[in-house]
Nucleic acid binder design. Structure first.
Lengths: 341, 341
DNA sequence: CTGAAAGCGCTTACAG
DNA sequence: CTGAAAGCGCTTACAG
């Protein structure tokens, strides 16, 4: 193995130049051949690819990003990693983008618009190829940053009427409505809504709940228990106890997320509250374990993997410069009725 | 705002050059001032910082990486995101590295050495500043890649006797041993070990379990139920049912992870199996919800946030070129006894 | 303590 | 279809 002599600051790395020399072409041609650009003689492409393989050439992403003013990175900003929901979305995004040579970067906002803005600043400096954001709720500055950057962007989890804004999700409002309607159909009349975190999507579900109960003349604001604390199994139990203390006549509880609902179910078990006999309980998202609860939890199955896949595909087409026919893709949801209601 | 005229391929971006001009210094000085390098007159530093702030200058990471042959990226490779364990580690790593200007990159290996090797190849091409890997179990090629790159690397979750290898974790073997010992002390004699995934750390816990039972002359290989399937709440229930069908005399079950144990507990509830009356049950990791189970789950609390923080700190010192006094940091674990045993 | 020159490894126009 | 030149925006030695 010959140690190639370089003038200064040798990095030890195989460069495009060396590949080009080995293949007997110019670096430009090698670059084009390796990137699969059209209009290079098939024979040269083969020679370059062979040389690259033999030398173990790996393109330098930094050099590439600097020269082309665009990296292969796609930041995905999610509120949390502790909600399985977002992990599923991320997995799907990653496996869709990966084969196309794009690298998924995970950013966690903790539901904090300031943190999101900061992340956006950092990531945008990296000249990302595309951007995936959760929902529409962010600071005006963040919105401006994205717009000015010109980086293609798709929003996750929600829908919009606005044009020129791309998103993939489902109607949080309708899902909240339909689950409530199910409880009403089951004969429940004092249906509580118990929520934590109170992020925009949770509040959209709350609106669906309200709309449904108002239509049935069953709405009672005192049946809403809204906690800004982070959602957790433990909190679900605590909130259920709070609720039953102040409103012992409640005959159904709609928890805004399955972790709360699981906690509620476990608390009921501990307290000897019959479910669904005395109180029906339902959750949201169909998280892991909900089908194993005693009784199994009625919930809304949300298409999170599909959202990840579809949003990544939409972003791929935007990055190619195409204009998707539908800018707001509705992937729906599925009411999943089990023993708890 | 004046549009600065540039020769060609204008990126619209504020460059170091413009900051330097505004501050009336050379770009080199501006660079040094902004990076906080020693040996720049305090007054110049102030002028440069002011100019940078006023112009809204954000350094280009690609240019920086290319020129310095080192990026600010720190890839962290974990097996899964669906185990809260790793999410906690990641969060801690991220918050430790962030203030020092390093960017955490999350890579998911799915417990697959081939995938890990591929990720390593990709990430190493980015000239990372440091590397965080889960455990020691990987392909020889992966090991070589890391070694040859010279990138500082810290291993998570396990300990080692080897010198020159850096790691932060706890003894999986001892944790498995101690939990088993607890069950023995509780008077249990037919103690099963139920595991899924069967990754290296799970098998180290199995070894601890075996060592303990052998010492008590209670070891019986037929009490081990090892499934290669991915760990989940649902699987825990299924495995418990399998176990009790073939070994109805079992009086305690050590599940290798809390999700399995939670599933086991729920299945017991469904089947009317008294816990701990007929069968004691214990898990591992003290995941969310374990304290809310009925009965609450005995488990081993593992220091995952601490592992994230300590490993990131160790990496920071390695990246500074320091040599940590202790290359294998043992953060211990805590037996957490609750109602299920 | 400060700076002019060169270089990091690639791609973008511009020619031919 | 192929290539010589210039440039992306920064930092690394080397001087002084």
């Amino acid at each position: 193995m010959s140690t190639t002599e370089r003038k200064r600051r040798p990095s030890g790395r195989i460069t495009l130049n060396e590949v080009a020399q080995a293949a007997g072409v110019s670096p430009i041609t090698a670059s084009r051949a390796l990137r699969g650009e059209r209009g290079v003689a098939a024979e040269l492409v083969a020679r370059v690819q062979l040389a690259a393989k033999e030398l173990g050439y790996v393109p330098d992403p930094a050099a590439r990003a600097l020269a082309s003013q665009r990296s292969a990175q796609v930041p995905v900003l999610v509120p949390l990693l502790s909600n399985a929901l977002f992990v599923d979305v991320l997995e799907a995004v990653h496996s869709t983008l990966q084969p196309h040579g794009f690298q998924t970067l995970i950013g966690v906002t903790h539901y904090d618009p300031e943190q999101e803005e900061q992340l956006l600043k950092t990531y945008l400096a990296h000249r990302p190829a595309g951007l995936l954001l959760t929902g529409f709720d962010r600071t005006e500055a963040a919105r401006q940053l994205v717009a000015k950057s010109g980086v293609p962007c798709v929003h996750l989890m929600e829908l919009t009427q606005a044009s020129g804004v791309y998103c993939v999700g489902f109607s949080q409002h309708d899902a909240g409505h339909d689950l409530t309607e199910h409880l009403v159909q089951r004969g429940r009349r004092r249906i509580a809504f118990v929520a934590a975190q109170l992020d925009p999507r949770t509040m959209q579900r709350a609106e669906g709940y309200r709309a449904c109960l108002r239509a049935h003349k069953l709405y009672d604001p005192r049946l809403e228990l809204l906690s800004p604390q982070p959602s957790s199994i433990r909190l679900g139990g605590e909130l259920l106890e709070d609720l039953l203390r102040t409103r012992p006549d409640v005959d159904a509880v709609f928890f805004c997320n399955d972790d709360l609902a699981q906690g509620g179910l476990l608390a009921a078990l501990r307290l000897g509250i019959e479910v669904p006999g005395r109180t029906a309980m339902a959750g949201f998202n169909d998280l892991s374990g909900s089908d194993q609860m005693v009784p199994p939890l009625t919930t809304v199955r949300t298409p999170r993997s599909a959202i990840g896949t579809a949003s990544a595909q939409m972003l791929l087409s935007l990055m190619r410069g195409e204009k998707p026919s539908n800018n707001s893709v509705d992937l729906g949801f599925e009411l999943t009725v089990r023993g708890s209601t």
